[in-house]
């Protein structure tokens, strides 16, 4: 539960106006993606989002890039939550 709390705090922190920056969000998304991939809980939808964000930024659409990167970050955070949840609750699916 604590980790979930941190994850939420984390996303709050980076979604706050102090970090309204597409480039930083993209970097954060990539960092998170690497972590969640290591946990083997990466979503197949995340890397394409980051690619789209990069393209949007290159095209000068900072706002769109930012939104896409944020979505990518959110997906990685759900991956963290899944990893955490699975490590504690996976046995619930076992036949009793």
């Amino acid at each position: 539960m604590k980790k979930v709390f941190y994850a939420i705090l984390f996303s709050l922190f980076f979604s706050s106006p102090c970090f309204a920056n597409a480039q930083q969000s993209i970097e954060q998304a990539e960092k998170n993606l690497e972590k969640v991939a290591k946990l083997e809980f990466e979503w197949s939808t995340t890397a394409p989002l980051i690619q789209k964000a990069k393209k949007a930024l290159a095209d000068g659409n900072e706002k769109i890039a930012e939104a896409l990167a944020k979505e990518a970050i959110a997906q990685t955070e759900y991956g963290f939550i899944q990893a955490e949840y699975a490590s504690k609750n996976w046995q619930e699916g076992e036949p009793k």
Partner: peptide, 11 residues
């Protein structure tokens, strides 16, 4: 554990 763990966007 892998077999019983939910993953992916569809969970």
């Amino acid at each position: 554990q892998f077999f019983y763990s939910k993953r992916g966007q569809l969970n």
